[in-house]
Design a binder for these strands. Structure first.
Lengths: 127, 127
DNA sequence: CAGCATCCCAGGGGATACTG
DNA sequence: CAGTATCCCCTGGGATGCTG
């Protein structure tokens, strides 16, 4: 994987200044995994209890079926979420978050916090 | 540990369906402001004490002068950082973070945290 | 050192239409 | 409902080179 190589490089250079390098690298790793416009909103939606494709789709303003489909597939492949076929009649599909996925909780929470206070700020100042 | 508690809280908040709409919005707002590959690493670098263009550049693996230049300009316009011309001989330029910028601290911290444990995970399992 | 100017392109992502 | 398939555009972002 791409990250593997990055790790190599990082380890090599990781000699002179303090552990800043390590942190920068960690930050960039996270950014890489979370890359794109939709992964975090999707994770958030699923963690909020949305399981069905339509529900997730409707819970995220602006997303298209194509994007949701693509991301869902990729994130399933990466073990971030689990796809289950529920064998009712009619058959339905359920997406649930893995515990790995839930490790993003802290990041999402911080972002929600920031977004809220950002909105307050915009209200306060005449932009 | 304090951070552990944050995660607990995060999980609670994430599984609570009430203010969903507002939170999705907040999340997407943040994602919008932080959009792209470089803003967070740049903020992190400056918050870590790097002030000069070259220093910031060298502290972020993979960034080009073009990208740093672009982002710095945009972020200065958006009040995220402050550009100061230090009138020494020779003249030098200093970038510093505004307190607004520092409000991203929580997000950055969480991302560094996640990136580190992600790396541990990769070491552990044969991917 | 601190950048701006050009050139260029992969691919992220939107719109729309179609299937099991 | 749960997606897949096309078409296509735009822009993020890399490479390279040049100035004050």
């Amino acid at each position: 994987m791409e990250i593997e190589k990055t790790i190599q490089v990082a380890t090599e250079v990781l000699s002179n200044p303090r552990n800043q390098k390590e942190e920068v690298q960690a930050l960039q790793d996270t950014l890489y995994v979370l890359g794109g416009k939709w992964k975090l909103p999707i994770i958030n939606s699923i963690c909020n209890g949305n399981k069905r494709f339509r529900d997730i789709e409707r819970s995220i303003p602006g997303i298209t079926t194509r994007m949701l489909s693509k991301e869902l597939k990729e994130m399933t492949a990466n073990q971030l979420i689990k796809r289950t076929v529920v064998d009712d009649t009619p058959v339905s599909i359920e997406y649930t978050s893995t515990e790995y996925c839930q490790s993003f909780g802290g990041i999402i929470l911080e972002m929600i916090r920031w977004g809220k206070s950002h909105r307050q700020r915009l209200k306060g100042t005449a932009d």
